[in-house]
Design a protein around this nucleic acid. Structure first.
Lengths: 166, 166
DNA sequence: ACTTTTGGGGAACGATCGTTCTTGACTGAT
DNA sequence: ATCAGTCAAGAACGATCGTTCCCCAAAAGT
């Protein structure tokens, strides 16, 4: 019973991932969300409870859609060059912003991204047969490269000076 | 002529570095600034023009006070382990936030942090006698470690698998 | 002593923030 | 045909945002 929704919840969440991944949490207003996601204010609050609620759903979706596939691709990697290339070129804008900007202010976000990064570390450690410490360092290095916009040759130069590791 | 200031501009800017380095730009309100910096609203606007003006001054001060000394310490470094340790343990909270959160929205901030990171790269390249590409990768890796809160053993594990480089 | 200049105190501005309310349109079940 | 329940449209809420105004206090120059 009742009227049918005029918006697709999946599309809305994906679009929210794009918006929140592009600028800071406080830089995205509810007006922005309503305008760009194509749903009404009421529907937003009915469906997600609050702006933060939508953000959390978008973050989890980002991790499920963009991070899990990355971890699966990493499982097939056999050297650190591939790992660095895969991680630093992945679409992880929202994760990066979440780590730097939201996690310090929102412990639910902090728990989410900590677990996500840990699973990334584990995937790398398993794929290359290395320690989780070293895997965590590789993840960190890749995120750092991503953060700097992958300066030309940096990733290549780094892997050229890394041991075969495994 | 005129009345003397009841606040120390240096102290105010340093305190602003601390505030802006602790949470996102939009997460620091003018009320927060006025309360924690110990100067009046009027004085803030008289002295710095706007919240953004104070932010820019604080950012430049952060780079001058915290990044330049780091570059000087780096000049004495002879191996990548020292570089990673120095950079990843430096107090670069504001720089990190600026890169991830403000630079995409404020091109003056973007120019500032790009130049700062480039000078860091150059200092590392000069100290170790390596290419700027590799130095940029080291900077990125150190920032990534810093971003993850320097997980135990990660930096050590990474350097153990790096060539002597030079 | 008087003027001039600058800084601090505090209220207030319009704009925008996230959120909620009211109303009416739509649709499936009775 | 009627009812119950969901959604959309849009105005409006109080709170907070960055910024400005007015007034008086304090100190330097004449």
């Amino acid at each position: 019973m009742g009227r049918r929704r005029a918006f697709d919840e999946d599309e809305v969440v994906r679009a929210a991932v794009g918006l929140f991944g592009g600028r800071a949490y406080d830089g995205v207003s509810v007006d922005d969300l309503v305008t760009h996601l194509g749903l009404h204010r009421n529907s937003l609050y009915k469906t997600f409870g609050s702006k933060r609620g939508l953000y959390l759903v978008a973050l989890r979706r980002h991790l499920a859609d963009d991070l899990r596939p990355l971890a699966e691709k990493l499982a097939a990697a056999t050297d650190s060059a591939t790992v660095l290339r895969l991680v630093s070129s992945a679409d992880l804008g929202l994760l990066l912003l979440a780590v730097v900007e939201r996690a310090p202010a929102d412990e639910e976000v902090a728990a989410e991204v900590t677990a996500a990064l840990a699973s990334l570390d584990q995937a790398i450690a398993d794929a290359l047969g290395i320690s989780t410490e070293l895997a965590a360092a590789l993840t960190a290095a890749a995120l750092g490269l991503r953060l700097r916009g992958n300066p030309d040759g940096a990733a290549v130069a780094l892997t050229q000076h890394l041991d075969p590791l495994n």
